[in-house]
Design a protein around this nucleic acid. Structure first.
Length: 257
DNA sequence: ATGGCAATGTTTCATTGA
């Protein structure tokens, strides 16, 4: 079983990329973030024609998440948002696939550490943490895939000195990433040897991709039982090399089942 | 110290992202 996550930065623009990528990478599950589409505009039929069922939860201009699966989804297993959190923003979606609870998340960006958006980011993650604690009891086989907007360690940052204390790397954010791990979740990417300077996002400006000035902020966290059957986790840089790419690139995880 | 790129809608600029 293969699962992937990809912040597409507008599914309207990136649908051809997604379809082509799925053709080359026929994963069982693909979680998307920043679809930036209201549900009435979601390209359900086009994805179905490519062999994928979808559930989605979107809004105009910002945010929006979706889960694509090769197997049909059971509607009653689908859940939107974090239970117990009042939130207008469409950032979280869950579904069950082959007994695995799949959580697709688009964490808030936070803008700057002195902004209201940063306060919201921390509050959102705190709500996620307490919700996940109970969710893990209900679903021991759980995977949290998405754009976390957190680079967990300095090795996930191209220039740690320049980023020191900034949003995406600040200590309160990193502490929350560790709190996710303390729930028993493991960072699938770090279960395996990886190339030095592996990142999942590069700024569009300053030729950042070509210079590999990036951050690793897209992650797959696995619950304990799934960590034990995980056999690979890779970042696929190819889509970032295309014309008109998303600034993020997919992360793919393989489970032995 | 600043902006640099891309997408969106309110569009011919402002806002947001990361």
């Amino acid at each position: 079983m293969k699962l992937a996550t990809w912040n597409v930065n507008s599914l309207k623009v990136r649908l051809p990329h997604v379809l082509e990528w799925l053709g080359e990478n026929p994963v069982d599950v693909l979680c998307l973030q920043e679809t930036k589409l209201t549900d009435d505009r979601f390209p359900k039929a086009e994805l179905e024609a490519a062999g994928y069922a979808s559930v989605f939860c979107g809004q105009k201009t910002y945010n929006g998440v979706a889960i694509l699966t090769r197997e049909p989804l059971v509607a009653q297993d689908v859940e939107l948002g974090i239970r117990g959190l009042e939130d207008e923003q469409k950032r979280l979606l869950c579904a069950s696939v082959a007994g695995v609870r799949v959580v697709c998340a688009y964490f808030p960006n936070g803008q700057t550490v002195d902004s209201e958006k940063y306060v919201y980011k921390l509050r959102w993650i705190d709500a996620l943490l307490s919700w996940l604690a109970s969710e893990l009891e209900r679903h021991p086989e759980l995977v949290l895939l998405g754009d976390y907007n957190i680079a967990p360690e300095d090795r996930d940052v191209h220039d740690p000195a320049a980023w020191q204390g900034q949003v995406l790397v600040s200590e309160p954010e990193r502490a929350r990433f560790r709190a996710l791990e303390a729930l028993g979740l493991v960072d699938a990417f770090r279960l395996f040897p990886q190339p030095e300077k592996s990142y999942s996002w590069w700024d569009y400006r300053m030729m950042a991709f070509r210079r590999n000035r990036g951050l690793r902020i897209d992650h797959v966290l696995l619950s304990g039982p799934l960590g034990k059957i995980c056999s690979a986790c890779v970042i696929d840089k190819l889509p970032r090399k295309r014309e008109q790419p998303s600034d993020h690139t997919p992360v793919i995880v393989t489970l032995d089942r």
